[in-house]
Design a protein around this nucleic acid. Sequence first.
DNA 1: AGGTTCTGTAACCTAATGGTTATGGAAAGC
DNA 2: GCTTTCCATAACCATTAGGTTACAGAACCT
Lengths: 116, 116
Amino acid sequence: MPEETLDLTFAALADPTRRAILARLSRGEATVTELAEPFAMSQPAISKHLKVLERAGLISRGRDAQRRPCRIEGPALAAVNGWLETYRDIWDQNYRRLDAVLADMQADGKDTTGGH
Amino acid sequence: MPEETLDLTFAALADPTRRAILARLSRGEATVTELAEPFAMSQPAISKHLKVLERAGLISRGRDAQRRPCRIEGPALAAVNGWLETYRDIWDQNYRRLDAVLADMQADGKDTTGGH
DNA sequence: AGGTTCTGTAACCTAATGGTTATGGAAAGC
DNA sequence: GCTTTCCATAACCATTAGGTTACAGAACCT
């Protein structure tokens, strides 16, 4: 909701490595080394990325002995969706078309949706 | 659709000034000076922000004599929504759970979750 | 023609970003 | 107890980002 949170969230999502990490986490929890494995990048680099994602609220970290399993967090993504919703009439063409259809229906009471 | 485009789009959205510009443009076209007016910032700074937004495909610029009217572009925002859609089951679920929690709290203040 | 308005570009500065290597610490395994 | 595994932190480096001031150019207005 706050602007500053959106700053962090969008900034976190602006990196392809971090989006790939989220894609991986969307299929279940994973440890840092598991997350680092697919990338041609050092482990500290991944740790930094995870810190960015955590600060943005996009992931959280638990504890399993030495492991630090990461889990994706929904609310931050929901906030992005919330922001995007305010622009729905702009990007969603179907929404405009529906709007036009509803306007037609209200104009003359005829069913313009049935005769495709 | 391409990863690189998402990079530019998310990065563009990570700045509050640029999101404010988009909010302004969502209510109609505006020139550079019109867009710069609300901000405690120089005009070249706004021009830079507009360049970032344009490179991200979030706005386009027309021509009206010396004016360079800016218009918001839907497809880039639709791309963000498309990316977000692949995570809908994640943030939507949490949304509902939060919703349920809030409903419980508002219902009677009793602990209906069966816990502590 | 000359001045004003609107906008983009260049040069510059500071701070943040994204990567590295080196190191250290906690917990498991032998 | 010693080693190994997993991870974070520190120090450093190059690049990018966001801001500034100064300037230049195009189009309008006398």
